[in-house]
Structure formats: structure tokens, C-alpha cells
Design a protein around this nucleic acid. Structure first.
Length: 857
DNA sequence: GCAAGGTC
């Protein structure tokens, strides 16, 4: 029997497709890829019985990058990135997708591609083809490769697609290849160039990466443009007429003037005079109209993001994480979709019924079911996935926090979308006083409909308008000239930004949260109260800089313009190479112009940020001029010598202080003490050696505990006690400053082994030449206070091995240092083992030191 | 260390 391999874009889709196509008869098994299952069943293909295997990838199999040698920022001029050779790499190496696909394709006769029906999906088709063809029978000739085209995940649509298989569209796939290449080259060239140019130039410029991208930069520009219109806003004075009339004995009506507000005071005063001269207002009409506020269409991703931000105060990135969790746990349907209409086969009643058990929804569900199950509005079927709907009932206890609130909204939106529209009466009273028109309007809800579920959409009942006959006369009670000022707009809300991005085609439903997250994390904007996005000085100065040099770089239509070119490739109307070459040439020219004009941007930076010489506080002395260098705490933290005009790098995280004015014996720089905090490592480093390793074999970014200096009291030979048994070439070193809570840790950056020893000892030093006869570790010389000594017979000093000596080893406690955040700790924290370490392998400190001693001899 | 696009 022949075999047909079918591949979908994601595991969830493979499951639904297999279920539909096998009529629920498929069996599922695990595969070599932890994320993907394989669903198998027998059926017919081209009229012959075959064995079907349905599986999936996880989005793109490959992603584009430069060849490794072009990823060295020190050696590559960013302009080269416009022509540097690129290569495709596995997008998620840990999934090992290529190997998995090749495995599953072994001995397969036909390939059917069920990737999403958009350009990205078409591109992934070819990634899959390339991964499987060599394993397939017949080498994967294109004649045995088919493409299923479907526009909804419904039984009929999917069966039809299977009956009408087509071929993958290479033009569309190539358009995506072009997009990837353009984004990579343009984004990386600008990012590397401007990062390098501005980094380290200003003391209070708090950013290690100054990025540019065809999506993120226009996104930032939206926020800055709003900031600019707030800054340049000039309030204008306006005036209007406030007129009140008497209606019956007890009621006074406030009227709205037809002219609204005017910017001409004299004119308004003139009108006031005219109106005052009249004693009564004449009723022209009272109109009562019934109006309808339509229920929402079905929920898609972008709307969910907007509401989550504006209504629930949850940002887009978090919302997607929470939604994905709700999806994988089976509470809601697939959360990444553009579609806003339910398919005709979607069983509304079956979807509504279980929601009766959701807190606060019972009544709405019963009403809907008793009235026939509800009806949805039109909406738009994009053919990707069904709208976001709840799949089963859940309570706050099982979901908790944000997940519960988001779930509750998905439920409310779903029920609202199939509920009745809101109906209300709008009444307008029109009056005339001396030729000027006035009115008064009122709203009254007739039937709340869906607004009972979505209170933010509710129509508020306001003052009812009295029922008056036209021609009636109402005495004018008072006429006032009120004044006011126009007020500036507020910062852009995240929800408004999402709408702007959607309108301009910047990003996709899946990538919009990523772009917004990027501009926050890169410190270009901050999220303020009400989830409004306020640009930082850095964000403002960047956008203004681009605007000064080349407006195109921040224009919202930049993405659209590129897409237009790409669509020509997709439609087969333009040659891939021609489009790529032309667009790259344009952007290379823009890049070169940007580089030539960067001084214009730098002028803006100069006004906003302080030069290094004017920032920071004096910390330690420079070994060359012996003057104090300044410590710049803004990221990246560093030392700056104004005399020598030199910057010295420091470790990226952790705190820095002066180490007792001790000088490095090699270069006279005063040493500084680096610390990861109370539960982490602390060690000394030389600001000069840190970037200029003094000995062969020493890496950049080495500190004193990695230095081979043979006599310096702070270097490895004097502090190392034993080899670290948790990593390859680490040594355990004692922290000479840690007493009386003596600490020892591994001298390599990546290893977090930390141990506490001989608490309360007065001094602990390493005996350089005395090795333990049992385990080769260096002996420690430990001195206790005479009243606190644990040694018998009033002894206060012991020279022994900390691992093999019964007493010393009982005073050792192992744990792991806090590196950065508990999440990033290697191997978990906590106590590792008890005092006795007799089972250790040889503890002889690692051989590098011996090699070094040889070097000195 | 960089982009944007998939998705786990």
C-alpha cells in the first residue's frame, strides 16, 4: 500500500484535519519531535487504497541569517550586510524539525501540503518539500507533491480541498524569501550601525541596543507623532452660549446651541444679546426615533488585544501568552485568527449550552437558548481559523487572575455576538430663539440586548426629553456666555496603536504584540496609566533623527511600499532578483545617506543626553594617568577616564564598587569589586585587564579570579582550592572578603556552584603548596576565635582539607549562587549535599595553573 | 547582540 504524508502548519490543525478526513478514525502517536504528533489512518487517494500520515510543523522550519563570519560586529562594516551571503538555519534548533520531517517521509509516495493558505504558508510548503524530498520514494518529484487549498476549517471545505488538490505556488513562496532577505539586511545594517555609533557616547543613554526595523520603527513613530502633537498643541479659547429654558413649573432644560463653540468672542456676545432680547423659545419639533446599536461580530485576535489592553489593562504580549495557555488547556479556540464570522456549520447552541455554568453568564445563556439559540452578525471569513470562542465552562479558581478575566471576556463577547442588538430611543427636541437654533437630546434604553453582557458598550439613560407640541413656547430662564479652551490630545493608548498598525498593515495579528513589546523593552516608550504609550527621550530623539535625515525611514507606508513590490513577485509579475536588487539598492543608498548625515541625528542626541565627561561619579583610578575614572551606571555600565578619553567595559549586570584602592600589579589600575548581590558571587576585577586579557589563554571579560598572575593575592593561584566538579574547567575559589560568613564559589561565569564554609572563622586562607593526600585539594588554614572555636582543647587553628577533614567538612554547606534571576539559575538552588564530601573525584585544581606556572618559569 | 515571520 502506498503512503501519503500530509503536513499542516501547526499541531492543532493537524489534529482537526486528521479527524475530519478520517471521519474520526485516525490513531495518533508521538514522534521524534516533542511538539508534533502523527495521525494515521487508511483511505483512498487517486482511487487507490493508501495509508495516510497527517502531521505538522511549528510555523517556519527555517529562518534566514548571515553566514557566521558576518555576525561579528567588530569585523563587519554594516554596509556589507546589504550584500553579505546569507544562509537558512533551523528556526527552532531544539525541535529538530528537518530531521523529524525526513524521518516521517521515509518511503512515502505522495506529499500533501496543508499549510495555512497565505504567502507565509506557501513559503513553508517549500521548506517542507526540501526537508522531505530526499527521503521520499522517487526522490520527491514535484509530480507527487500536492497543495490543499482551504478557506475554513469545516468538514465540507476540508473534504473539498482534498478532492481538488493543486500545486504549491512558488512565486508566493519567493515573495516571502524576498521579504525575509530585505528585513534582515535592512534591519541589521541600520541596527548595528546606529547601536555602534551612539553606544558609549552618552553617559545617561540607557540602552545597549538601538534597533531599527521596518515594523518596529513606524510603530514607534506613531507614539512619537502623538507626543509631538501634544507638545506643539496651542490651546485656543472658545466661547459658546449656555441657554436654559423653563419647562412647566418644576423643570429647567439646558439647551445645546446649534453653532456649538465659536472662536470669536465678540460674535458669541452679539448672539447672546440677540437671544437675551427674546423672552421665550419656540418648540420646532420633538422627534423620537428608535435606534439600534449592533452586537459585535465574532472575536478575532486584534480585537481581543484591543479590548484586553483598554478594558482589562492587560498588554498585548501578556494577552497572547494567556490566550495561548487557555487554548492549549482547551478553554478557548485557537487564539490567532483574523476571521470575524462563524462558519455556517458552527453549532451555536452546542457552543452556548456549557457556558451556563460560567459565573455571571447563566441568565444570558438560558435566555439565548430559550429564544432559539441566537444569531450572529455577518463578519468576515479570512479563511485562516474560526473566531475565538470559549470551548468549555471554567471558574475563577481553576484559571485565576488574568486568565480568568480574559476567559470571562471571551465568553461574554461570544454570547454578546449572538445576542440581540441593543435598542434604544433617541429623542431630539428642537427649539428656536430669535433665529438661533437650539436642541436637547435624550436616550432611553428599550432593550439592552448584548450590552447586558458587555457593560462597556452600554447606552446610558440620560435626561428624558419632555413631550412637547411644536409651536409651544418656553420662557427663557437665562442666557450665559461660557468660555473654555481646547485641550491637547492624550498619549496614544495601546489599543489605538494596535488599530493604527492594523490600518497601515504594520505587523500581523501574531506579530503586533511583538513589535509593541520590542519598543517597550528597548526603552523607546513606557506604558503609563490606562495603558497609554509615552515615548522616552530616546524614542523621541530617534524618530526626530530619522525625520531629519530621511522621513521615509519612519513613514507608516514604508512597510506597505515594500509589500507592494513583494506582491508583484507573488503574482508572477516581477522577477525575484530584479525586485530584490532594486529594493536593496534603494535602501543601501538610504543607509549610506543616513551614515553620511548621522551628525544631524547626533545633534539631537547631544541636546537630550549628557556627554560622558559630564556624567557618572568618580570611582577608581586610571592606571595610565592616575586620575579618577567615572563610573557610568547607565547601561551598559562602564568606567570612563576623561583624561585619557577612554571607556572601560564592566560586566553587564551586578553592582560595582572600589576594592580598597588595591592596584592591579600588571597595569596599576585600581581594582573594583563586582557583586551579584547577597546570595551571589563577589569578586575583584581590573578594569583594564577585563578588556585586555594579560596572559595567553585568558579570555576577554576575565576577572581576578580567572587571572593566572602567580603572586597577586587576588588572583587564581592564591585563591583556588579545588577543581569544580560541576563544570568543565572551573576552580573553586575562596572569596577573601566574605568572612566571617566565608564563601567559596566556582570561578567560571556560567557555573553557579557556591558553598559556605567555616562560618565565624576569624580567617581562612589557602595553603598554596600543601595538597590533601587523599583528594589533591589545597589545604585551608583556618583560624577561629578562642571563644568560638569548634576545635577541641582550646585549639584555634587548623590546617586541613575542607573535604576530607571530618571537622572542616562538617562546616561546609553547598548551594547555588544567584546568577541573575532565580529563573535563570542552572541546576536549581538549595542545599546540594551534606558536609562530608569524601566521594569526590580528584580535587586537584585544574591544570591550567600548572601550565601557567610553566609559562612564568 | 541585529529584522520580521511562523508557532511550542
Amino acid at each position: 500500500m502506498k503512503t501519503v504524508l500530509m503536513v499542516a502548519e501547526k499541531p492543532s490543525l493537524a489534529t482537526s484535519l486528521a479527524k475530519i478526513l478520517s471521519h474520526g478514525q485516525s490513531t495518533s502517536r508521538k514522534s521524534s519531535c516533542r511538539a508534533c504528533q502523527v495521525h494515521e489512518y487508511t483511505g483512498k487517494f487517486h482511487g487507490e487504497p493508501v495509508y495516510f500520515k497527517m502531521t505538522s510543523v511549528c510555523g517556519h522550519v527555517l529562518s534566514l541569517d548571515f553566514e557566521a563570519r558576518f555576525n561579528n560586529w567588530d569585523k563587519v562594516d554594516p554596509v556589507e550586510l546589504f550584500s553579505a551571503p546569507t544562509e537558512k538555519k533551523e528556526a527552532s534548533p531544539d525541535l529538530n524539525m528537518e530531521r523529524f520531517l525526513a524521518q516521517e517521509a521515509r518511503g512515502v509516495d505522495y506529499l500533501v501540503l496543508w499549510l495555512d493558505c497565505d504567502k507565509e504558508g506557501e513559503n513553508i510548503c517549500f521548506e517542507v518539500i526540501n526537508a522531505v524530498k530526499r527521503s521520499m520514494n522517487g526522490g520527491g518529484r514535484m509530480s507527487s507533491v500536492y497543495r490543499a487549498r482551504f478557506s475554513a476549517i469545516t468538514d465540507t471545505e476540508i473534504r473539498q480541498a482534498m478532492q481538488n488538490l493543486a500545486r504549491p505556488n512558488e512565486n508566493e513562496a519567493r515573495a516571502v524569501d524576498a521579504r525575509q532577505e530585505l528585513d534582515l539586511r535592512i534591519g541589521c545594517a541600520f541596527t548595528r550601525y546606529q547601536t555602534r555609533f551612539f553606544q558609549g557616547k552618552y553617559g545617561d543613554l540607557d540602552s545597549t541596543l538601538i534597533s531599527f526595523g521596518p515594523c518596529q520603527t513606524p510603530t514607534l513613530a506613531f507614539c512619537v507623532e502623538r507626543h509631538d502633537s501634544i507638545q506643539t498643541f496651542k490651546p485656543e479659547a472658545f466661547w459658546r452660549l449656555d441657554v436654559r429654558v423653563q419647562c412647566g413649573e418644576h423643570r429647567v432644560l439646558s439647551l445645546d446651541w446649534e453653532r456649538g463653540r465659536m472662536f470669536d468672542r465678540e460674535a458669541v456676545q452679539m448672539f447672546a444679546g440677540v437671544v437675551r432680547a427674546e423672552s421665550s423659545a419656540t418648540v420646532l419639533s420633538v422627534q423620537r426615533r428608535e435606534k439600534v446599536k449592533q452586537r459585535p461580530v465574532a472575536l478575532n485576535t486584534v480585537e481581543m488585544l484591543r479590548v484586553a489592553s483598554a478594558g482589562l489593562g492587560i498588554g498585548p504580549s501578556t494577552t497572547m501568552m494567556v490566550a495561548e495557555r487557555l487554548y492549549t488547556q482547551g478553554y478557548i479556540s485557537y487564539p490567532r485568527t483574523e476571521t470575524t464570522s462563524y462558519s455556517s456549520t458552527f453549532d451555536l447552541k452546542a457552543a452556548i449550552r456549557p457556558l451556563e455554568r460560567v459565573r455571571g453568564m447563566g441568565e444570558a445563556v438560558r435566555d439565548l437558548l430559550s429564544s432559539g439559540g441566537g444569531h450572529a452578525r455577518g463578519g468576515h471569513d479570512v479563511g485562516d481559523h474560526p473566531p475565538i470562542t470559549p470551548l468549555r465552562a471554567a471558574g475563577e479558581e481553576e484559571l485565576g487572575g488574568d486568565a480568568w478575566r480574559l476567559y470571562q471576556y471571551v465568553v461574554a463577547h461570544f454570547l454578546a455576538s449572538v445576542s440581540a442588538d441593543c435598542r434604544y430611543a433617541a429623542t431630539t427636541l428642537e427649539l428656536r430663539i430669535a433665529g438661533e437654533l437650539f436642541s436637547m437630546t435624550g436616550k432611553k434604553v428599550i432593550k439592552p440586548g448584548f450590552t447586558a453582557l458587555l457593560p462597556s458598550h452600554a447606552i446610558r439613560d440620560d435626561e428624558t426629553v419632555p413631550d412637547l407640541a411644536s409651536g409651544a413656547q418656553l420662557p427663557v430662564k437665562d442666557v450665559r456666555v461660557a468660555d473654555g479652551q481646547t485641550s491637547p490630545p492624550d498619549y496614544l493608548t495601546e489599543s489605538e496603536l494596535i488599530s493604527l498598525m492594523e490600518q497601515h498593515g504594520i505587523g500581523t495579528d501574531a506579530s503586533i504584540p511583538v513589535h509593541i513589546n520590542n519598543i517597550c523593552q528597548r526603552n523607546y516608550v513606557t506604558v503609563t496609566a490606562g495603558r497609554r504609550l509615552q515615548p522616552t527621550p530616546l524614542g523621541i530623539v530617534l524618530v526626530h533623527g530619522y525625520q531629519k535625515i530621511d522621513r521615509d525611514l519612519v513613514q507608516a507606508n514604508m512597510r506597505g511600499a515594500i509589500e507592494k513590490q513583494l506582491n508583484l513577485i507573488a503574482a508572477g509579475q516581477a522577477d525575484f532578483d530584479a525586485v530584490l536588487e532594486h529594493t536593496l539598492a534603494t535602501f543601501r543608498a538610504k543607509f549610506q545617506y543616513f551614515v553620511a548625515q548621522i551628525a544631524g541625528m547626533d545633534q539631537l542626541f547631544e541636546v537630550t543626553f549628557s556627554k560622558l565627561a559630564e556624567s557618572g561619579r568618580p570611582l577608581s583610578r586610571c592606571g595610565k594617568c592616575m586620575r579618577y575614572m567615572k563610573y557610568i551606571s547607565a547601561k551598559p555600565q562602564r568606567l570612563y577616564c576623561a583624561q585619557c578619553d577612554e571607556t572601560h567595559a564592566l560586566p553587564p549586570n551586578g553592582s560595582i564598587k572600589l576594592n580598597k584602592e588595591i592596584k592591579c600589579p600588571l597595569d596599576n589600575f585600581e581594582l573594583v569589586l563586582w557583586s551579584a548581590g547577597g546570595r551571589g558571587k563577589t569578586y575583584s576585577l581590573c578594569p583594564y585587564c577585563y578588556s585586555h586579557p594579560p596572559f595567553p589563554g585568558m579570555k576577554r571579560a576575565s576577572s581576578c579570579i580567572q587571572c593566572y598572575h602567580p603572586t597577586c593575592a587576588l588572583a587564581l593561584p592564591k585563591l583556588a582550592v579545588a577543581a569544580c566538579d560541576e563544570c568543565e574547567d572551573g576552580s573553586l575559589v575562596i572569596d577573601p572578603n566574605s568572612g566571617p560568613k566565608w564563601k567559596m564559589f566556582c570561578n567560571t561565569v556560567a557555573c553557579n556552584v557556591l558553598l559556605h564554609l567555616c562560618a565565624d572563622a576569624f580567617s581562612v586562607t589557602v595553603c598554596e603548596d600543601a595538597l590533601c593526600e587523599v583528594c589533591d585539594a589545597k589545604l585551608l588554614s583556618v583560624q577561629f576565635h578562642k571563644d568560638k572555636t569548634p576545635l577541641g582543647d582550646g585549639e584555634t587553628k587548623r590546617v586541613a582539607c575542607m573535604f576530607c577533614d571530618a571537622l572542616l567538612s562538617s562546616l561546609v554547606r553547598w548551594e547555588h549562587a544567584v546568577a541573575k534571576h532565580p529563573m535563570h539559575r542552572r541546576g536549581g538552588g538549595g542545599k546540594r549535599r551534606g558536609g562530608g564530601g569524601h566521594k569526590r573525584r580528584s580535587n586537584k585544581p585544574k591544570d591550567k595553573m600548572a601550565a601557567l606556572e610553566a609559562y612564568f618559569v
